[in-house]
Write a protein that binds this DNA or RNA. Sequence first.
DNA 1: TCCATAAAAGTTGTAGGATGATTGGTACAT
DNA 2: ATGTACCAATCATCCTACAACTTTTATGGA
Lengths: 229, 229
Amino acid sequence: MIQKINRLSLVEQVAEQMEQLIEQGQWKVGEKLPPEMELMDKFGVSRNTLREAIRALVHAGLLETKQGSGTLVRSTSVLGAALKRHVKKSTMMETLEVRFALEKQAAKMAAERRTEGDLAKLEASVSETKVASEKEDIDQFITSDIEFHKAIVQASGNQLLIDLYEHMTDLLYSFVHDFLAMQPSFQLEQGLHLNLLDAIQKQDQASAAMYVENDMEVLKDYILKMTEE
Amino acid sequence: MIQKINRLSLVEQVAEQMEQLIEQGQWKVGEKLPPEMELMDKFGVSRNTLREAIRALVHAGLLETKQGSGTLVRSTSVLGAALKRHVKKSTMMETLEVRFALEKQAAKMAAERRTEGDLAKLEASVSETKVASEKEDIDQFITSDIEFHKAIVQASGNQLLIDLYEHMTDLLYSFVHDFLAMQPSFQLEQGLHLNLLDAIQKQDQASAAMYVENDMEVLKDYILKMTEE
DNA sequence: TCCATAAAAGTTGTAGGATGATTGGTACAT
DNA sequence: ATGTACCAATCATCCTACAACTTTTATGGA
């Protein structure tokens, strides 16, 4: 039996291994990597080869190098950095439209497939939101609000959907923060949360989609009004 | 006025410039880049620095290097390559679900914003599909079918949505091809096309979304039936 | 002349070493 | 306690050399 020759360049092999180490959590986000010298030994390649591999992952957004300090893990996903650049060139509204398209689909799928664990998470973030609302703690409110939306998408069980949504939400974070902080009342969002949670509990796909839909319309109008003034 | 310090490393500066050259079309897809020696001179950096920049773009999927031959432009978009990896790890169904979420949103927006030019494009691809259907030319049918779906998304006017959808569709191409080739009748798709086009012409957002929705359900059932057997 | 083969030139891949720049910590003097 | 000077660790950049592969050119025999 003749084996296919290993045509992958050393650099790509090293980069691939490092990606796996990051993805598998052996190199955790925020942690510092061993210094170049040590990695050279471990991988058995020259400094140039190692550096080219590191640079590829830095450019992809997985790693970050700091001269004089070290190299640390920045993210576990390539998609984030790639989306970031695209989103930069898009308008806020365009990004929101895509995000809502994903969330609407997610809500429907969540209503269909949600597990007990999903429901527990959703209920937890709803009550957290309520507490924050009563205490008028804006930061906590925003955090738990985002948590709720993410929990819905996670309940969809579609990993690609989850990844896309979370990255887009992260990119919109500062915007969402500013927007919600500006909003005079917490009533609106809370109503959505309760209705949506109810629909998902009852596995009512149509209602779940509708509530997300309504939410988008309200938000859209609100933004348009804001930008007009 | 204090200026922000130039924190970008040489490698990142070179990579950024190369990305721009590719994006602006000065280095076209399929073309070969000047050899490393020449680029070293042009950018005024050492070979290591240049190579690290090139390697970053290779890993991102924009370039491709061939030892002994040269380096050529492979793609103009980072998003495509990044999505590709994620999609690889996802199932076909997961990818389709996301694609449909995008298309549904696109159909609604297309119904709202479509221009005369958009309508002309849609009509053209519908009639192309019809011709292919009568001639029973499967390849032509598939090509014009995909063209129709892309035209809808383009009519949405949301560039981020367009980019995401087109990349995902490209990734699904071979699957769509196999699936449609296996389908016993062309009737189904054609019905959708006509109804959808009609809804978009009449700017009926709800109907447009509904037709896409129906299409997804049919396709989903069909796939499930196929995979059961 | 024509063609297969060999040689040469051009290009990317890998290795190793040297120096500069930045960061983080330590010891010392005030 | 504080600020300064120094030192060590680490990444950034550059340089040279050679290996591996591809493309082009030259060569020699039919």
